[in-house]
Design a protein around this nucleic acid. Structure first.
Lengths: 208, 208
DNA sequence: AGTGGTTTGTAACCATTGTTACCAAGCTTA
DNA sequence: TAAGCTTGGTAACAATGGTTACAAACCACT
């Protein structure tokens, strides 16, 4: 597993800043499918992903959900910041897609570092930009694509982020993340199998 | 029309910063339906809306469009910043929804002010947060709502932002912003009229 | 091996949205 | 007023996706 200092170094942060982040933060480990942030929660720390993957979902009033994007090694959940600068609340649900290690940074430090370190400003802004970009991507999917295309994109994204051709999810889980029904997912997965793009097994999908 | 200093003052910025912004920026006026930013453009200035409304749209490769959000008095197009900090390009299309006056701030100054003024950092972050929030709203609409609900929400948002019950758009224009077809919009508008939520005229819709 | 729960496959049907086609109403300009 | 364009109304049909129902396959546990 990577150390926090290595990750921060790769992000291009100054050594002095890295030391400060090391001093005031703490490392935590979260288990697969563990809930990290739920709508309405007030964050006091900004999570920085050291290893593993977090899944960021949007949830509406009736409990329907939709997948937005993944956070992976080196990514910060920068959206938490504006939760704290204002007194606004989280509008997401963040769940561990796999076991993950996180570096939790106290929010109170953020503004200091923003004033002090150019590299930190760049890091946070890039982070915002990347998230925004992924949101646009999500909008593209749900606005312009049919469910079969969205499903294939979902599988490819998952393959990309996990680095594995094998996806261990049930049709029901996938249906929830795409905000559709299990029957529809099964139907379309079968179609993708007939097109020889994937192979179906119980609890497992292989991308070809 | 409001002066730039007044607008900035209302945003809670320091007097010294306001002076700097006044010195280096320039004011422009854009006509209704004028294109401000197109996908692939590189922004060198950040627009700040003094009066009027800008419409921010997402456009895909095939030219299909979808409405994301409005920018109004006091709003900054903060997304332009990350275009410039990195060397990334605009992923939006920004159009004047009405005649608008803008204060254009050179990007080169932004980082200075971020380091120097706490109020500026807060302004930019709030701006990012607000835009992100509106994006989530858009995602909610297209992910969870049917076209008739989206249409009604669209009309109410437009009423809200323009401050007028009267909406001067053709069914074709609305169809483009919602990424659907004119026939569908006409059909659903007629339904809304029968439900006495709106009144239809040529080139004009009244929200009741 | 048998029981019970979970997961997947499939059919039939419905609702919503998209498409094509055509006409009528309204505006503009000659 | 006539011609031509833009805008809006409506019908008929197609495509996509959502719902209900049921059965089969698979797994875990006894």
């Amino acid at each position: 597993m990577k150390k926090i200092a290595d990750v921060l170094h790769q992000l291009g942060l100054e050594d002095q800043l890295i030391q400060e982040i090391e001093q005031v933060g703490r490392q935590i480990t979260v288990a697969t499918e563990q809930l990290l942030i739920a709508p309405g929660m007030q964050a006091r720390e900004m999570p920085l992903v050291l290893s593993g993957t977090l899944r960021v979902m949007r949830e509406d009033a009736e409990g329907r959900e939709i997948f937005l994007y993944y956070l992976e090694g080196g990514d910060a959940c920068a959206m938490s910041i504006s939760c704290c600068l204002g007194t606004q609340m989280s509008e997401f649900k963040v769940i561990a897609e796999s076991e993950a290690t996180l570096w939790m940074v106290p929010m109170v430090q953020i503004d200091n570092w923003m004033a002090k370190y150019r590299s930190f400003r760049k890091f946070i802004f890039d982070s915002y930009h990347d998230r925004f970009d992924e949101m646009l991507n999500t909008v593209d999917s749900i606005a312009f694509m049919n469910m079969d295309e969205r499903l294939m994109k979902y599988l490819l994204d998952k393959k990309q982020s996990s680095g594995s051709f094998v996806i261990n999810k049930t049709h029901e889980q996938i249906a929830q993340e795409l905000n559709t029904s299990r029957v529809v997912v099964s139907r379309l997965l079968k179609k993708l199998e007939r097109e020889e793009k994937i192979e179906l097994h119980r609890n497992r999908i292989e991308v070809l």
